[in-house]
Amino acid sequence: MAARVGVVTFPGSLDDHDAAAAVVAVGGEAVALWHEDDDLRGVDAVVLPGGFSYGDYLRCGAVAHLAPVMRAVARHAADGGTVLGICNGFQVLCEARLLPGALLRNERLRFVSRPVGLVVGRTDTPATAGYAEGARIVLPVKHGEGRYVADDATLDRLEAEDRIVLRYAPGENPNGSLRDVAGVCSEGRNVVGLMPHPEHAVDPVLAGGTDGRPLLAGVAGTLGTPAAAGTLSRSR
């Protein structure tokens, strides 16, 4: 059954509309959420979109993780609810400690904006359920601070627990991320963060391909169902 997917808008979010449109494109229902909301309006899944929340002041995601809506997101995550953080949303989830590690300035100090090859890890997360394990996909990245770091013990643990659910393909690492990490999941596997943008790869008419569709369909609960038009509600 199609899930109701909340898309949070922080001041400075840029990709909230694209994320909502992508949810609709894969047959889901997108619900607009606001950073000052105290609850999630009964949604089944939450997307934290890309952008520069609160201007990325102090550190990327540092101010956003203290927004009222993040307390509701943390409760949702603790209850096993699906949470997807894309780019700035991934940074917010790391700042909120809902995911391990942190994202720092790209190794070569350049903003990167281009498609990158990726390899899908385990498929027992909402974000990866629509792919075959080991599948090679292409999604766009666009970030200046996407270098994933964590201490060796954390990285070893993530590998041992198969929680690196997306890696840059060999030779494709655009930012110096340790162990080619492009996306990780929580211990309960219901919270997933990734730097590439699946929501920019859902429409065959546009450049960028459609490799992002299975990821969003997994989050929206529409895998394996015909691509009917979803709905977009703007209730705020």
Binding site: R105, N106, E107, R147
Partner: peptide, 14 residues
């Protein structure tokens, strides 16, 4: 400061 074991590309470039 970034922790000592982490690469500081800004420091390196400078």
């Amino acid at each position: 400061l970034l922790k000592r074991e982490l690469l500081d590309p800004q420091g390196r470039a400078t």
